[in-house]
Amino acid sequence: MSNVPIALQGGPAPVPSRVGHVLGRIEYEGYLLAMIVVMGLVLTFTVGSSFWSSTNLSGLLLDVAIVTVPAIGMTLVIVTRGIDVSIGSLVGVVAVVAGLAFEHHLPFVLVLLIGIAVGVGGGLVNGAIIAWGKVPPIIVTLGTLSVFEAITYLLLGGVWISNIPAKLTQVVVIDRLGPVPYSFVVAVALVALFSYVMARRPIGLRIYAAGDNPEAARTAGLAMWRIDLFVYALLGGLTAIAALMTVGQSPLVMPTTGQNFELTVIAAAVVGGTNILGGEGKVVGGLLGAFLVEIVEDAAILYHVNSFYQQIVLGAMIVGGVSIGVARRRRRRTEGSLE
């Protein structure tokens, strides 16, 4: 009953108002962009000099990059009707492994590759239990959250790793393309890549289909387990990239590295318009959502708002983002049935 397509409800629907009609033409991403621009303008006119300072701006862009990269993966996971709350502690694992590898003076690029491999591995564990164990994703990732935390602790052995090579910080934070840190360029490039994958590659089509109507997808013979493995492993890999960026940003690995990071990423994804019920969501929404979340945070810092309020705002953005999404889809349903 519940997965009957929306248009089944048929029947006469209220004629949408003219305003509603015009607004309906604008894509959700347009609103997000507008909100970011408005936030930017407000900041410009109030605390313009500090907002446009190159330290603030590049710091903001780096923060956006760190959230955006895993938000791409989170978007895909949510599109398949999943969720992953373990990525915060996965950040910890990757950071520690990378830190240890640096301590052993492994080649720079090899360390990066090892870090990403660890992330993919963690994601594969989640994906495998979800795909084959038929355990709800929230339970699986709640469990692995603490497992990853324990692994981080074990590997750290109670000490902090602080001798991260300056090269990482150089690459992540200092090297820039104009005013834009390379990390942000990487994030944008990944967004472009996965926008392309989701729009133009067969796997993208299959991911959308699997989340939109799992029953239909299964009947059509799509290998659902492959899709699960793919999205969770991808999220793991992207999380690893974010972890490496985090280590570059603050070259210190400690047991709390990455804590609560998953919430920011989930916030970015749902604020970015991904349908929490699956089947819908754009990778670029993750970027815009991350931007909005981070610019709000930046504003809080610039206005010297108590940092405690930031958490409240973030929570409100998650709940607000999803309820706007629910309302938006409800409205579209009544309009859609006009046909």
């Binding site: 397509p5 248009a7 959308y208 289909a209 939109d212 109507n213 029953e215 009947t219 089947g279």
Partner: peptide, 8 residues
């Protein structure tokens, strides 16, 4: 009852 992907 057509088995479709409504959002696609």
């Amino acid at each position: 009852e057509p088995l479709v992907y409504p959002h696609l």
